[in-house]
Nucleic acid binder design. Structure first.
Lengths: 188, 188
DNA sequence: CTCACACTACACAGATCTGTGAAGGCAGCG
DNA sequence: CGCTGCCTTCACAGATCTGTGTAGTGTGAG
């Protein structure tokens, strides 16, 4: 998947946009193919099935998100700021504009089969972030980082969902403040 | 909608279960009708369209949830415990078993049209909880309850999502602890 | 007895869904 | 030149989707 044919690249970009905007079941392969300027045959030659296309869409999104968060964490040196870096990324991201919530949560809502190729991708995305919180909390000197790491994950997921669903302004700011509070409490 | 024919009642019960378990788009009206022991004609005679059925499903779920939370709040007298009551309900609910996350968030993931009859139901469900937090915080003596109310809403939504998607144990407990912390901070 | 109502039976419309089969064009590369 | 890889065209299969039209059965209330 490192190299991708031009057609496959366009298909994946279009699929990513449509899946996120309208949901997975609501977008058919015919639409994706047409919008990509590609025949349906090409889509199936490249990806094999819609399920695989969905999984690939989520995997790529996951990779980009991890890269962005990792970079933000690495850019900070003070331990407490490193822990909170994902919340800064989140705030920047929702400020960029059209947020329809978390793509992984949304996909989870539409996938009931644990055997679906996207299922593990979704679960692992969350666990990665929880582990990142745990690592950074430990690095900041927190002895038992498990509970605070979970709390930060909960806060992070909640912020994305609430911002989108409740169309509530000020969620990112309130969330960052809450995260700071939880980190301070864990440090003392 | 207060009174409902026996057929309609069965249809709505079946639809609620299937929509929550498999997603809205994944469940067809034929399946719902068959599973309810009812013809498709009856379904359309009672509800008019699938969209209305979906909205009705969410509205009823909303009503039941509000009743349950309201009762839990009313059962507490100490202000701080009243604020935290929704988190106790949430913990009880996920302990009951099969949680596939928040039905409203899941529905939101599948509905892109703001004109959909279920759209307002979803948004209002979240705002109701935020307002409940704000009211109870004010009752506990918090001057500016807006930000802490948002924080508690974020925490609440995050707990539901994280428990289901990350299949993370201990989320309800960690969330309750976090909520207590945020309330204490708001009170001081 | 009559009328409204809940519901059944069943066919059908028209669209859309995922996925496949067969044949061929075209470019780059050995 | 011949091969491989990317892609097109087009037809088609078979299922499933939401929604409707028509006709008729059974029941309880006035």
């Amino acid at each position: 998947m490192t190299t991708m044919t031009p057609g496959a690249r366009r298909i994946l970009d279009v699929a990513a946009e449509l899946f996120y905007a309208h949901g997975i079941h609501a977008v058919g392969v015919d639409t994706i193919a047409a919008e990509s300027g590609v025949t349906k045959r090409t889509l199936y030659d490249r990806f094999g099935s819609k399920d695989v296309l969905v999984a690939t869409y989520l995997r790529e999104r996951d990779e980009r998100w991890r890269a962005r968060v990792s970079a933000a964490v690495a850019a900070e040196s003070e331990p407490a700021r490193r822990v909170l870096a994902p919340f800064a990324v989140l705030a920047d991201w929702v400020a960029e504009g059209t947020s329809r919530g978390c793509a992984f949560v949304n996909a989870f809502a539409e996938i009931d089969d644990p055997g679906h190729p996207a299922f593990a991708v979704i679960r692992d995305e969350k666990r990665w972030l929880r582990d990142l919180f745990a690592t950074e909390l430990a690095g900041a000197g927190v002895a038992d980082a498990e509970t605070p790491a979970r709390q930060l994950l909960v806060l992070h997921e909640g912020a994305l969902v609430t911002h989108a669903v409740a169309a509530e302004p000020g969620v990112p700011a309130a969330t960052e403040a809450a995260a700071r509070l939880l980190v301070d409490a864990a440090l003392s």
